[in-house]
Design a protein around this nucleic acid. Structure first.
Lengths: 208, 208
DNA sequence: TCAAAGATTGACCAATGGGACAATTCTTGA
DNA sequence: TCAAGAATTGTCCCATTGGTCAATCTTTGA
């Protein structure tokens, strides 16, 4: 590790973002009061507003961090992928990383997404998420099919991912990770040309 | 029309449910205050609590009504469908009925769904919605493919519908109705046996 | 060593919102 | 016609919450 030690500001900010996200899971946006966030982080309310201008900024940062987690989960896998198929698998597997694909986390995302129509800051993050996923998918699909077909396939894949996440957040109809991946590949394998189902490209097995 | 005239209670209840849903679109759950709902309906706050026990019940009823709208949109089309394919088309078209498939309405659904984890009443409605859609799809798909394939296809279709709705509620990545239907049938036609794409089964044209 | 900068707390404030209620107006049926 | 019941309003109350601030305690660098 090169450079200085982590500054206290960064430690506190991280702790509070994390606390905010966790309270959000249980309480929703309205119920996630500054006092509860502070308590959950083991601090006083004042400290929260010492490190964040206001409630909006706190939860904006919380969303940023959650997004970064998902982004990294995909990026790791993308780095090891060699074929276009592998890159698609990377996007899918990353979005269903068992560390993040959990009902409680989906609850928090749901709470955040519900604020998007009224919080331009959150809307921007959401836009980035969509754009990134679309771009990742397109870069792989363009090599496998004509432009228009690629675009549609990308929309279908990302729409499906969103739908499965949404359902995972609502109690009923939520499918566990294993089945979600089965469904995704059931769909994908039929759409990609020169089907080689079971070619070992998509690895549903253990995580590092 | 047989029977008595509509009772005032029912009129008021309906007006207030509708007002609640419309305020929800703009303001989200926390912002949808009883006073705003009352004002939007042209009444005073007191009247809202005269017809509904409390805020929870009001929005539970609002969700019930929105659900009934969607249910009817599907049911109408289902009544005219003759083939299994037609029944699937009915479910799809109903869920993208242009009267309801609108960003503002998706905003309200998003706000409602975000409360599901903490409101058992809302969770129950959500469960009914999922169960109904799954059942409708299965009844058609069972005739077209083996049980397990039918189950997966049903999950994929309903997941896709949810995903497209979700995206329609978030500003970015939302696809308009026409394209949503194109995507849905692009997906469905490839999965159903004995493909007859363009057999006129799915009607994307005008509403009655 | 010690003073300045930063961290942390708790008290305080103004605004807001859900809900209870008494008072008033309107309907209606005998 | 008129009294009982329903509809409607406005007021009041209390709890909660985001945010401010002055007062302490800690750290640190010169």
């Amino acid at each position: 590790m090169a450079g200085k030690l982590t500054k206290l500001v960064d430690i506190r900010r991280r702790e509070l973002r994390q606390a905010a996200f966790e309270v959000l899971q249980r309480e929703g946006m309205a119920g996630a009061t500054l006092e509860k966030v502070a308590a959950h982080a083991g601090a006083s309310k004042g400290i929260v507003l010492h490190y964040f201008r206001n409630k909006q900024e706190l939860f904006e940062q919380a969303m940023r961090e959650a997004n970064a987690n998902l982004r990294d989960a995909v990026a790791e896998r993308l780095r090891q992928a060699k074929t276009p198929r592998g890159r698609i698998a990377a996007v899918v597997e990353g979005n269903f990383d068992p560390r993040f694909y959990q009902p409680e986390i989906a609850h928090a995302w749901l709470a955040l997404c519900a604020e998007v129509p009224r919080e331009p800051q959150l809307a921007r993050i959401q836009a980035v998420i969509h754009a990134r996923m679309h771009s990742n998918l397109m870069s792989a699909l363009r090599e496998l099919m004509p432009a228009e077909a690629a675009r549609r396939t990308a929309l279908l894949i990302s729409g499906l991912i969103d739908g499965l996440w949404l359902r995972h957040g609502l109690q009923s109809g939520g499918v566990p990770r294993e089945e979600a991946l089965t469904l995704m590949y059931d769909f994908i394998d039929r759409r990609l040309p020169a089907d080689q189902p079971g070619d070992g490209v998509h690895d549903q097995s253990a995580e590092p």
